[in-house]
């Protein structure tokens, strides 16, 4: 990768300072806003490290959606943003400092020569059905991880949206659960401009993922961002976005593709090179739809269900 530049030193120091500041911020709102800033700066760090795919995922999911979820929750938990006295402050500080020290020492002992798998990935990239190495690892070489991860995402939706409690006491009476939106002309205009753009960007990322940075997760997150905007502006999400068939689609399809290979006498998830491209495109489209639906539904949370 590139040389270490002054920019990197500044970026790294800013990340650590922001992290410190946002944890210590007396106001939770300030903390969350700083967290979103942190995520955006971190995306630059990913680009500097030659990992634009991670940068996209970080900006869309890490900073964007997690920040939106936190801000939304803060609004729904009024009067509770007072922080009590920190507990076990010093013993934990000593432990954390020791952990940090050990980690720093371990990093400094790493040999200068890389020990990774870039060579192995490059050697078999052609058999994977996609031309972009990160997408090849994500969907094929380590597709099994991604399959289980789609399961995690589906399960989070299940727990939040479906695995409801015996209904919350009269949700319609609770202001925090009402799907009420701060609609105004500016927001409405913004949404009507932004949502089509987000859909275009999402579609582009999905398409680009096969040969350039991008892919299902980033595209799904962008589409989910459109869903979040729609919700914020008071447009109800279509029922289908919350229905089980849509949110489970990516997980189900990938699992089905994997088992079909095993049923045909190959290993689980072993795709024939000739079919790999088409099957992976199918899986990616399904995954994008699921990811967008799950992430948007996670944001909408229980409000949309009640």
């Amino acid at each position: 990768m590139g040389e270490l530049e002054a920019l990197d030193l500044l970026l790294g120091l800013a990340l650590v300072a922001l992290a410190w500041r946002l944890l210590a911020a007396p106001d939770l709102f300030e903390g969350i806003v700083l967290f979103v800033t942190f995520g955006l700066l971190l995306s630059f760090a990913w680009v500097r490290l030659g990992a634009p795919d991670v940068a996209l995922a970080e900006a869309a999911i890490g900073a964007g959606l997690t920040g939106a979820l936190l801000l939304d929750a803060r609004g729904a938990m009024p009067g509770a943003s007072v922080e009590g006295p920190a507990r076990l402050r010093w013993p934990v500080a000593v432990l954390a400092a020791a952990t940090g020290g050990v980690l720093v020492a371990a990093v400094l002992t790493l040999p200068a020569a890389p020990a990774g798998l870039e060579g192995a990935v490059a050697a078999r990239l052609e058999e994977s059905g996609v031309a972009h190495p990160v997408t090849a690892v994500l969907l094929n070489f380590r597709g099994y991880d991604t399959l289980l991860e789609l399961g995690v995402l589906w399960l989070a939706w299940l727990a939040v949206a479906a695995a409801g409690p015996r209904p919350d006491p009269r949700p319609e009476l609770r202001p925090d659960l009402r799907a009420e939106a701060p609609t105004g002309p500016v927001l409405a205009a913004l949404v009507s401009q932004l949502v089509p753009l987000l859909i275009l960007v999402g579609a582009y990322l999905l398409w680009a993922g096969a040969h350039a940075p991008g892919g299902a997760f980033q595209a799904g997150a962008i589409l989910a961002g459109g869903g979040v905007l729609l919700r914020l502006s008071g447009v109800p999400l279509p029922e289908a976005a919350r229905a089980a068939p849509v949110v489970g689609l990516g997980f189900a399809l990938f699992l089905g593709v994997g088992l079909a290979q095993a049923a045909a006498g190959r290993r689980f998830l072993e795709l024939l090179p000739a079919q790999a491209h088409d099957l992976l495109v199918l899986v990616e489209v399904a995954a994008t739809v699921s990811i967008a639906a799950v992430l948007a539904a996670l944001f909408a949370g229980r409000r949309s269900v009640s």
Binding site: I61, P114, G116, F141, D145, G215
Partner: peptide, 22 residues
């Protein structure tokens, strides 16, 4: 550390980001 960045941990981190948001 090498001339290009290892794609395997990049894919793991994308997985990790999705797990973390879930």
């Amino acid at each position: 550390r090498g001339p290009t960045t290892d794609p395997v941990p990049q894919a793991m981190v994308i997985t990790g980001i999705v797990v973390a948001v879930s």
